[in-house]
Design a protein around this nucleic acid. Structure first.
Lengths: 247, 247
DNA sequence: CGGCGCATTGAGGGCGGTCAATTGGTGTGG
DNA sequence: CCACACCAATTGACCGCCCTCAATGCGCCG
C-alpha cells in the first residue's frame, strides 16, 4: 500500500501540524502514550456499535470504515478513514459509539488511552485543541457528504469519492500520479455512496467509458483529473488540508 | 415560540450539563464572556460561507439552519439548530466556514469571542472538553442524517425530522404535548431532507392521511407518537440527550 | 475441478424529479 | 373596503434514475 517511505506515525503528525505544529515536547508526550502497534485483519470489526471504548484508535496503515447496520440488513458507511486518521477520537467524550468501526483492508493501528489523553490535554491545552480540531474536520466531511449523497446523481457521487480519496491518500504519501489502491469492493462503494452494488457497477463503467479513470479490481488510476473533478464538482476546501496556525 | 418559562441562557446550560455540570465559577466565567443578546430577522444570513468569524454564535431563541448553496441554485440545509445550540462553535478552530448560517425564523442570539473562549479553555480544561463535546454531538447528528438521507424513503425521512425536532425542542422547553412550531416552510423541509418541495407536500399529506400528525402552516401536532417513531425508525440515542459525567 | 467472492449484464418497475397551473392566505396600497 | 401582489401550499402529468431480482462471467484458492 505504501508509495513513499513515510513512517506511519508521521502520517498522523502531518495531519496534526495543520492546526499548529506541536513542539518537540508535545510531540514526545503524545507519542509516549500510544500503545504498541497491532494489526487487524480485513473484515474484522475493531469497535462495535454501542461500545464504550477506553482508548481511541489511531490508524497507521490500511483503510477502515465507520459502519451503521440498518434494519433491512444493509449497511451505510458514514465515513472512511485513511492512515493518519484517528478513527474514534469522538469516543473520548461521547457516551457510546453510534456506529461500528470495521477494517476494510488489513490494517495497522495503535491506541491512545483516554485517561492519558485527558491528562495530556490538561497539561498542553493547545494540543487538546489540535485534537478537537481533528474531530471538527471529520464533521466538516460529514456535512459535505450530506450534500453529495442528498443532491448528486450516482455518477457525480462516485467521481467525488475518487477525488476525495485520491487527495487524502496523496496527502499521506499513499497515492501518486493519479494511482492508488481503493480498499473497497464495488458493493462497499455502494455502502458509502448510498447506491446499490449493481448501480455502482454501471457508474464505474460510465467513468471508464468517458476516459476518466481506469478501475480494475481495487486498483484505480485517474486518467483525467480535471475532467473527474469537473464531473464531481470537487472542491477540496472541506477537507481542511491547508495549514492554519493558531492566532 | 416559548412554551415553558425558561431563561434563554439556561437552555444552553441544560445542554452543557449533559457532559458534566460546570461549577458556579465555570458557569459565571462562561456567562461573563457572552456579548449582549441581539435579534436577527427571519431570512437574514448571520454568517456567510467562507467567512472567518472571530466569535461563535449561541442561539437563544428561534431556528437557524446551516445552509450550503449548490451550483444549480438549489440549497442543502446540513443542520438545524434549536435554542441552546452553538451555531458555529466549529468556527473556533476551523479556518473557514464551509457553509452559511441563516435565520429561518426571527431569532435571538449572543456571541462568545474566540479569544475569550481560548483563555477560558486554558483556565478550565473541563469546560473546554464540554464545548468540544457539543461539537461531537453535532457530528453524531450529521452521521445519523447521512444514513437517513441516503437510505430512507421520503416518508421515513420526513417522519424522522419531526421526531427529532420534537425531542430537541421539548428538551429546551419549546414543545409539549406533541405540539410545536416548525420554523420551516415545506420548501425548506425539502432542503433539509434532500427532496423537492412538491414531494415534501405529497409526504405531508400522507402523514396526515395516516393520522400521524396535524400539520397546518407551521404548527405541527403529533397525533400518534408511537406510530410516527415506528415509521421513522426513530431511535434517539444519536442525539446524546442522556446525562453522562466525566469519569 | 469445484466453490466462492466479486464483477457484470438484462429486464422491469417504482419513487421521486421537473414543469406547470391553481388555490388560498396575508399584507399592502388605492 | 377592495384590488392586487406575493408567498406558500396543493394538484396533475409525465418521465427518468436507480432499485430489485435474476442470471452469467471470471479470477482465485483449496
Amino acid at each position: 500500500m505504501r508509495v513513499e517511505t513515510v513512517a506511519p506515525i508521521d502520517r498522523f503528525f502531518r495531519r496534526l501540524v495543520r492546526y499548529g505544529p506541536p513542539d518537540a515536547e508535545e510531540r514526545a508526550a503524545l507519542q509516549a502514550i500510544l500503545t504498541p502497534p497491532r494489526t487487524v485483519a480485513a473484515g474484522e470489526t475493531m469497535i462495535r456499535q454501542f461500545d464504550k471504548p477506553q482508548a481511541s484508535t489511531l490508524l497507521l496503515d490500511g483503510l477502515v470504515g465507520r459502519v451503521v447496520t440498518l434494519s433491512g440488513g444493509s449497511q451505510q458507511i458514514t465515513a472512511l478513514q485513511v492512515p493518519g486518521d484517528f478513527v474514534d477520537l469522538h469516543a473520548f467524550l461521547l457516551a457510546r459509539m453510534d456506529h461500528s468501526v470495521v477494517a476494510l483492508t488489513d490494517t495497522l493501528v495503535t491506541t491512545a488511552p483516554h485517561r492519558a489523553l485527558r491528562s495530556l490535554m490538561d497539561r498542553y491545552p493547545r494540543l487538546g485543541r489540535a485534537l478537537w480540531y481533528l474531530t471538527l474536520v471529520d464533521a466538516s466531511i460529514h456535512r459535505h457528504w450530506l450534500t453529495v449523497v442528498g443532491r448528486r446523481q450516482a455518477t457525480g457521487r462516485a467521481a467525488h469519492l475518487l477525488c476525495e480519496l485520491y487527495v487524502r491518500l496523496q496527502d499521506v504519501g499513499l497515492a501518486r500520479d493519479g494511482a492508488f489502491t481503493l480498499g473497497l469492493t464495488q458493493a462497499e462503494v455502494g455502502d458509502v455512496l448510498s447506491l446499490s452494488a449493481v448501480h455502482v457497477n454501471r457508474v464505474v463503467q460510465e467513468l471508464r467509458a468517458r476516459g476518466l479513470v481506469a478501475w480494475d479490481r481495487r486498483q484505480v488510476v485517474i486518467r483525467d483529473w480535471d475532467g473527474l473533478c469537473a464531473l464531481a464538482e470537487f472542491e477540496p476546501t472541506y477537507l481542511q488540508l491547508e495549514d492554519q496556525t493558531e492566532t
